[in-house]
């Protein structure tokens, strides 16, 4: 609503520019001049109609603006603050959702990127005491089908332990194993396998409004 007037002013200015010939310097002398007057007349009529419509719209907007000004300001402030919260919640959820990855047939948390990701999740959990998460451990397709269920479970436990040994209550972190049953990448390459050896985090409670750490 706030932007309505400038938008219409711009539209009107563009239309006027178009009606005035647009590119007068580039336009050669028209070969056919018979209908030029009627074309110009039609353009002028069209322009007049548009100008009138724009003026009418601007007037209505102005009335609406003045009558709802206080309400608008109040709502805007509210929505600005809600927007901030929801944007922050989304950002924090994205931090949580980032999967950690594992080496082949290993459940250890890898130093570097993966440990850093868990440190970030740790700070999120510390900043949001009401938040609970669940970790689903996955394996690539290469190991034994049934052993992979145990391996996925071990991976989820390993990530959980990383957080609980740093002070997060075990009751806030659930675990489950998906084995090799839900690959993130259905391929059969090293890259696919690396992508599939993962721990996925999902929010199970307290995810309504999350605070950035």
């Amino acid at each position: 609503m706030r932007l309505a007037l400038p938008v219409y002013a711009t539209v009107a200015a563009l239309i006027v520019a178009a009606a005035c010939g647009g590119k007068p310097a580039a336009a050669p002398a028209p070969v056919q001049t018979v209908n030029q007057d009627s074309i110009d007349a039609a353009r002028r009529r069209e322009q007049a109609d548009r100008d009138a419509a724009a003026r009418e719209q601007a007037r209505r907007d102005s009335i609406a603006r003045s009558s709802q000004e206080s309400e608008r300001v109040r709502r805007q402030r509210e929505s600005d603050s809600l927007g901030t919260i929801s944007r922050e919640t989304e950002a924090v959820k994205a931090m949580i959702a980032r999967a950690v990855h594992y080496d082949f047939d290993k459940a250890d948390i890898r130093v570097g990127e993966d440990a850093g990701m868990l440190d970030e999740k740790l700070r999120v959990l510390q900043a949001n005491p009401g938040l609970s998460v669940e970790i689903a451990g996955h394996a690539d397709e290469r190991g034994s089908d049934e052993y992979n269920l145990a391996l996925g479970n071990r991976r989820a436990i390993s990530a959980k332990q990383y957080l609980t040994t740093r002070g997060i209550s075990p009751s806030r972190i659930g675990t489950r194993s998906m084995g090799e049953e839900s690959p993130a990448n259905p391929g059969h390459t090293e890259d696919a396998w690396a992508a599939n050896r993962r721990g996925e985090f999902t929010v199970t409670a307290g995810g309504g409004a999350l605070r950035r750490p």
């Binding site: 269920l149 145990a150 479970n153 959980k160 659930g174 489950r176 194993s177």
Partner: peptide
Amino acid sequence: FLNYTAAFSPDGATLAFSRSSDEGT
């Protein structure tokens, strides 16, 4: 929990299986 690799005892009376939980497998 997650229970799998069930195997019968030869007399059919007992079922042995693996269980994965957050206590391990």
